[in-house]
Design a binder for these strands. Sequence first.
DNA 1: CAATTAAGGACTATTTTAGTCCTATTTAAA
DNA 2: TTTAAATAGGACTAAAATAGTCCTTAATTG
Lengths: 149, 149
Amino acid sequence: MIRVGKLTDYATVILSVMAKDKNRVFAAMEMAAVTGIALPTVSKILKILVNAKVLMSTRGSKGGYTLASEPENITVAAIISALEGPIALTECSISKQACEQASGCGIRANWHLINQTIHNALESVTLADLVRPLAVPEEIYIPVASLYQ
Amino acid sequence: MIRVGKLTDYATVILSVMAKDKNRVFAAMEMAAVTGIALPTVSKILKILVNAKVLMSTRGSKGGYTLASEPENITVAAIISALEGPIALTECSISKQACEQASGCGIRANWHLINQTIHNALESVTLADLVRPLAVPEEIYIPVASLYQ
DNA sequence: CAATTAAGGACTATTTTAGTCCTATTTAAA
DNA sequence: TTTAAATAGGACTAAAATAGTCCTTAATTG
């Protein structure tokens, strides 16, 4: 299975709750209570999302977290890369060095294509789509040839 | 990073070598020599690919492995799921049980959409594309709405 | 100034993944 | 019919990645 860590899954749960009431400020403790995820873990995720600019935070009493942009503008690609790093399936897609080292390479340029295809797919889905479960979005066309420029 | 294990990466290397000479029978030892991947590891991967029907094998002396179908008909989705299991980013996409257990769910139906989108993307790339590195394929359109039926 | 809340980082435990090895089975050829 | 060359299957170990926790510091409000 191509996988994404549990933390990323938790992040979508947390962000979905926040998106449903997008102007509120949520404290970490509150999110832990609502989602059932342990507080230290929720905190960790929230901090990561702030660093990735998906969330904004305010410290001090009455502080907490809010969405940094409209749910329509927060893509699944952004959420996943916040928690998992750059979207890429293999090392060599990230650094060419790693690629050159391995023998038998020359194929791997194509992982790049695969990664781009997936990245585009993930950019086409937003947090707004996630909280609007059964809505049918407009058709999205992904011209693969555009990846080869 | 959304990731795929090293074994999957190795598998693409091995399969690419085989696709370039698609009617030959390759022994595991030969593949190890050509790719530089250790023999036990190569063997493990080849066995997995046979189980997934991506390769065919013949035992005994002069035995070895061959592609089970034309490179055009072996999709990247097939290769990845052979090594990683079903293509899905989260547990709950595979079993609904896992989904129901977690609190705060209801969002996760949408992971299903994301998984389908990725799966379609991976089905659109074949082994033939991998060995024809710089060719520009025809445009491929992925109508996301079709996933909602 | 006290209470509340986030930031940052270090650390541990758990789980997954990679990699190896052993034994059994099949086939071809001498 | 025996030997050599292959794959099949599974058990096991080691290494790496991930999840999860905790502690100390910093900021804000009343």
